[in-house]
Structures are given as C-alpha cells and as structure tokens.
Design a protein around this nucleic acid. Structure first.
Lengths: 203, 203
DNA sequence: GCTTGACATATCCGCGCTTTGTGTAAAGAT
DNA sequence: ATCTTTACACAAAGCGCGGATATGTCAAGC
C-alpha cells in the first residue's frame, strides 16, 4: 500500500491527466485562461467536474500542473537535443537553447499564455509566482545534464541548470534578438564554464 | 538649436524630473501605483498636472521613466561596487550582484512594486513589457563594465551585461536562495567567461 | 514655460440584482 | 471502487444605472 497502488490504477490516473491536459490545451488555443472554466475543461475531456477537483484540488493548482505538463513537452525536446551532442557540451547547450526558444516562440499556446497579461492569466505562473516552475524545471534540467555528463560536479550542474532556466524564461517572456543569436550569445557566455564543469568529463 | 537648448533649460528640466520622481517615490511608499493619480504626483511635486503631461506624454510613459529612474539609483551603486574591484573582475561581479540583490530585496519601494501584481501595477514594466528596461539597463551596465575594463571585447561585454541584467531581474522578481548564495553561484557560473573576456585586460 | 480653468472621453464606484463559477458533500450508477 | 450526478453554500462576475473621478488635450492668462 505504501508504494502507490497498483500499476493499473497508476496508469488510469496518468491517462486521466493526459486527457484533461489535452482538453485544456485545446481550450487555450481559442481563448485565455481567465475565460475558461473548470467545467469547460471537464466537459472537453469527457469527465465530470468532480474528477478534476479530486485530482488537482483547485483551479490554481490545475493551472500550475498544466504549465508544468506543457514545460515537460519542451523538456523532452531539450533532452533529445542535449543527448545528441553528448561529447560536445557547448554545442549541446546551443542546440537545446535555440530549439527551445524557437519552438516556444512559435508555439501558439505560449503566445496566448504570454499575451494573457491581467490578473487571471497564466503568466504569473512562470514570472511573478514562478518559483515552483523554476524549481521544477531546474530539477528536470539538472537531471538531463547529469544524464549526459554524469561525472560533472553536481553543484556546478545545478548552477548551470538554474541559470539556463531563468535565462530561458526571461528570453521567452521578453524576447530580444532572434532565437539563433540569443542561443549563440548565451552559449558563448556559458561556454567557458561548461568547458570547465562538463568538458573534463569527456571520456 | 540642434544640440539641445541652453544649459540652464536643461538644468531646470532635470530639476523638474527629479522633483516629480521624488514625489512619485513618496506616494509609492504608501499605496500601489494603480491607486496613485497623475494629479497626486503633480500636486505632490508642487507642479501642475499639465507639466507632467508635457514632460512625459502619458501615464504609462511616466511609469516607465520612473522605473528607469529608480533603476538608475541601483546602477550607481553597482557602478561603485564594480569600480572598487577594477583589477578583480570576478570579485567585481560578485560584489555588484550581491549588493544589487540585497538592497533591492530590502527596498521598500521594490517590495511594493513586486507585490503590485494585477493589471494596473508597475510589474509589467520590468517583466512582461520589460524590454525597454532590459535594453536600457544593458546599455548602462555595458558602459559601466567598459569603464572598468576598456580593453575587453565589446561584444563579450554586451553579452555579459545583458545576461546579468536578465538574471538580476529574474532573481529579484522570484528570489531563490539568499542574495549571497545567488551572487556566489552566478559569479561562479560567469567566472570563466569573465576571466577570458575581462581578465586578460588587467594591466 | 508653467498654471489655470475648462472640456470630452474613459474609467471607475457604489448599488442592487442576477448569473455564473468555485469548491464541497452526499446519493446514485456501472 | 471510482466516476457521475445532483445538490448546495458561497464567492465572483456581470449588468444597468447614475455619479464621481481620472485621463488626455485645449486655449487663455501671467
């Protein structure tokens, strides 16, 4: 009992979350979060409103869960980009960051999230009250980097990950130049540190 | 006529701005930006409402000008901290960033700015619509660094400055650990790049 | 050049009322 | 068992309505 139900129950739970997130995603393609009700999401997923509350607690927590779920999609891509350059740390960071900035900048959902400014929007989830997302993304990115360079010092990896996350959020919310130029500049900035922290781990 | 009026006129203009900003600052110590009217600011500065509009155009532009003016105060301190460590680039960055994070975190005005979340607040000026502030701060910080290390490559300095600005804003709006730890981590991260870009310029 | 007074327009405020959404609980269904 | 249905209390949001207040722009006056 202590290790979390049966595999079946865990699977249905995951299925439920996936379905509900898909429904929310579709809704968000049409109107901002502030105009979407929990009932909308529930019916869109073919699920009762209660099930939503049972799984997520309240509207705000669902919002956080959704944002993190979406971030997971990006992280999967980032992970792939990183693992494609396991022996060239700098190239890995450049590719990952550029891909992230490019896809995020083009993503319809992200555009709506960012344009959804006022009180009821989802923007605060990644900016003002964004600590949970920052921490989650840092943890995840730390794991990704450690997967690629297991011999790198953990403290260095965490520092690198958190800074990348914060810079990534900053550049997504207020873009400067192109994704390519931005990624290039950041990679150049972090390059020397990366060489030191990860570069020596090349076998 | 093309180089900007007489020195006297320029001085009175600067005096006006200073006085008005002081008034706004005092008001912001008591209630959020959304509850402060242009008339409040004007009368607080002993100036007519029209003068405000003549100088700043509209409420929004005044908000931006004020935020940048406040940022200037921090930049002055940052400049001092940098110039105290002209021959130790890493120490300069550490000291400047730590001082910035500490004072910003304690500053009553900043606290009010950050807690002023909703639509009418000033937070969007540094986050969502923060590009002007980022650009201004980057330009200013670039100048500061170039003052300390004139031989450093300009592109490197600009890259460093912009990243420091964005990380600074990120850590102020969503603080993680203590100012000291944060500054230490960031300095360690940027250290190798700084050694490369600025370190060789030590005479 | 700053101030004053005036102005059109927009926004906000209070008020009462209605509608809708949130969050919780228990009964019913499969 | 777990999801759904139905129900409910309560908080918000919408609305129409003045009236008040704020914004932004004039022209006159000193």
């Amino acid at each position: 009992m202590q290790n979390g139900r049966t595999p079946y129950q865990e699977a249905t739970r995951e299925l439920l979350r996936q379905t509900v997130f898909d429904a929310a995603r579709e809704q968000l393609g049409q109107r901002p979060w502030s105009e979407i009700t929990m009932a909308d999401v529930a019916s869109g997923a073919g699920v009762s409103r209660q099930t939503l509350y049972n799984e997520f607690g309240n509207r705000n927590e669902f919002g956080f869960a959704f944002v993190i779920h979406e971030a997971e999609r990006f992280m999967d891509d980032v992970e792939a980009a990183v693992l494609e350059h396991r022996n060239e740390p700098r190239a890995a960071v450049t590719a990952a960051l550029e891909h992230f900035l490019r896809t995020a900048g083009e993503d319809q959902l992200i555009r709506i999230l960012l344009s959804d400014d006022g009180t009821g929007g989802m923007l605060p989830f990644v900016t003002t009250q964004g600590l949970p997302v920052v921490q989650w993304a840092t943890t995840r990115l730390t794991a990704v980097i450690e997967e690629g360079w297991p011999e790198a010092p953990e403290a260095d990896v965490k520092t690198l990950a958190e800074s990348l996350v914060r810079l990534g959020i900053s550049y997504v919310t207020t873009p400067g130049e192109s994704a390519e130029d931005t990624a290039k500049a950041v990679a150049e900035l972090l390059g020397p540190f990366i060489d030191k922290a990860l570069g020596s781990a090349v076998d």
